[in-house]
Design a protein around this nucleic acid. Sequence first.
DNA 1: CCCGTAATGATAACGGTTATCAATCCGAGA
DNA 2: TCTCGGATTGATAACCGTTATCATTACGGG
Lengths: 132, 132
Amino acid sequence: MTVKRNTWQREAVREALDSRDGFVSAQGLHQGLRDAGSHIGLATVYRTLADLANVGEADSLQSPEGESLYRACASTGHHHHLICRNCGLTVEIAATEVEVWAKKTASDHGFTDARHVVDIFGLCPACTAASA
Amino acid sequence: MTVKRNTWQREAVREALDSRDGFVSAQGLHQGLRDAGSHIGLATVYRTLADLANVGEADSLQSPEGESLYRACASTGHHHHLICRNCGLTVEIAATEVEVWAKKTASDHGFTDARHVVDIFGLCPACTAASA
DNA sequence: CCCGTAATGATAACGGTTATCAATCCGAGA
DNA sequence: TCTCGGATTGATAACCGTTATCATTACGGG
């Protein structure tokens, strides 16, 4: 079966992710690593992020523009995000209330295997002040 | 100022959208029109759909894969969707409960100008039965 | 019926993401 | 510690959805 190896690249991506406050695009993270002197390849960043995402070490979502964004989240369980559309600042939200609603709504209509997308995009306090 | 012209192409896109039950991609709709004998161009379909969307005649959302999907919705106001990820069948949902939650959550954290993305993807009754 | 101009459409360009494939290097076993 | 197989990497080409280009078409007010 598939073996997981520890390469410095994988570690670099993990660290780079951890050092960020909000969501980043694969390209953005790659750029940041290059700027920091790393010679990591773009394809590797894409692969590693996708991998971390479905292993549960990172969360991913699509920006309103259709880009895939990633983030190393503190909470390990299922949760949602409140994201600043200007600076990317992200707040993790546990929305039990919405969780229940989504499940109920789906089953009320006979839908099975329901997954939901629930994210809030706005302007954080700092950016709100700055744009005033 | 900008004048809106009535071309047969615009009308064709509107009709094609209305004749569908669920969300469709621009390419899908274009293909359908071509199959029906229309000689409409792909670029026009994209332009028209985008236009209908921000005029409010159509709703748009991003599929989990990042494609833009469109739909002519019955309800004119703000609402959400329960979508079959297999056949595209869509149910419109008025989620006052979630609306309130989103607004409260945002302001609790000092976020302003909040917009939210709330969609549920699952398998409709028919597709659930078919995949069993 | 005319004419200015918005709309169209074939196609090129674009931007993000994934596939390719030879070179590399991790690490289990000897 | 050394070896060797196969997972991983990375430069680049290919993909795919979407948007821009621009010459041509045709809507519709006068």
